[in-house]
Nucleic acid binder design. Structure first.
Lengths: 200, 200
DNA sequence: CGCACGGTTGAGCCTTATCAAACGTGGTGG
DNA sequence: CCACCACGTTTGATAAGGCTCAACCGTGCG
């Protein structure tokens, strides 16, 4: 059970909790690149590359396994099956970042927010942390806003608009998607980029 | 010498010319994920993954080498050196997309534009297609605008502002960075994410 | 109780999109 | 050679979107 600002230059598998990786901007703002949830690796690319181009920060208490880079590479090079799995993990992470870029660059904040909520639902469902329409998200709104590249104030107003339209409900930390069909329609959400495993 | 809309499901090494990979949005807009220039692979991730989540399109005439996925994987699995190189290529592409996301999500259009121009300079210089302050870019502005997630009109005005400030000059297809120090200052540009090779 | 933190709301301003039109240039066909 | 067209660039006016500043609310915790 760990809680700290910067899991240094190690590789981890995240079992429980939420973390974010981000870049700082000259004006003090930050852009969150990816949200790490249960089942995700942290620092996998850096393990193969030797250096990281972003910071990682725990957003909640975490439960992780630590794997030394040497051990990871050693084991991977002996098991084609594992190697293939790691490749798939890396590729999937890249696909998610690319979709994230598309979301931020191409959608206005309202559908952008909706798309983000749908992606979280999909990813959490995949690891058994929620259903297609309901999950727990313990992150404060300013973190989600930093992810979507808007101010927390504007993000908040968009959540309000989605709520007003009867599309979502947020209580405590529980997100509920009341009308997934409509949410998918306004975003053009297609979850295939999230994938289901190395085989498909 | 090829010119077509969609290099189908193959892997290519780009020797000459410019290509873009992009995603379409429900409203008809498109977000360009990455610009491919000389020295870049096209469809490398897809080769290992079996499927692509984006479209690729030639923006100019191209000179490419075609490599079948089977051949690529066969050769890679026999040469650790090549395997390491491909890994580095994948990781670098991801780093560039992440920086792209940071640029689009975190910067206003003016520094965003400047950052983009600086990145191109860096990448082109690395492959001998330009200097630190001068390179050729044959792409129309609406393509660059789709890359940065703004309208071509607004992008054009930002170019004008940079020109007016004496920071850049664009003539025909030649981009000239007249004041790199100032451009780097207003963007906080740090080219390390682009890297120099598998060794550092 | 009082404080810290996050969520919510309002007003005004700046940024960016949209619609519309003019301009330049290279290519094509008469 | 010139008329015309296609394409990309540039500019203007207006509207919409998003940011900033500021205040208020709710809740948990010391």
């Amino acid at each position: 059970m760990i809680r700290e600002s910067a899991p240094h230059s190690q590789t981890y598998v995240l079992h429980e909790g939420w973390a974010v990786s981000y870049k700082r901007l000259p004006d003090g703002n930050r852009q969150i690149i990816e949200m790490r949830i249960a089942g995700d690796f942290i620092g996998l690319k850096a393990a193969f590359l030797g250096a990281s181009d972003r910071h990682v920060e725990a957003a909640t208490d975490l439960v992780v396994s630590e794997i030394s880079k040497a051990k990871l590479i050693e084991v991977a090079s002996q098991s084609p099956r594992l190697m293939e799995f790691l490749f798939w993990k890396l590729a999937r992470d890249e696909a998610i970042v690319a979709e994230h870029l598309t979301n931020v660059g191409g959608r206005k904040t309202l559908p952008r927010t909706a798309h983000f909520l749908l992606e979280l639902a999909e990813r959490l469902r995949q690891v058994g942390k929620g259903t297609a329409t309901r999950y727990e998200c313990p992150l404060p709104q300013h973190l989600l806003a930093d992810t979507l590249g808007v101010t927390s104030i504007h993000f908040n107003r968009c959540l309000g608009e989605l709520r007003r339209r009867g599309l979502i409900r947020i209580e405590r930390n529980v997100v509920e998607l009341l009308d997934r069909a409509e949410l998918e329609r306004i975003t053009g959400f297609d979850p295939t980029y999230i994938g289901g495993g190395p085989d498909g």
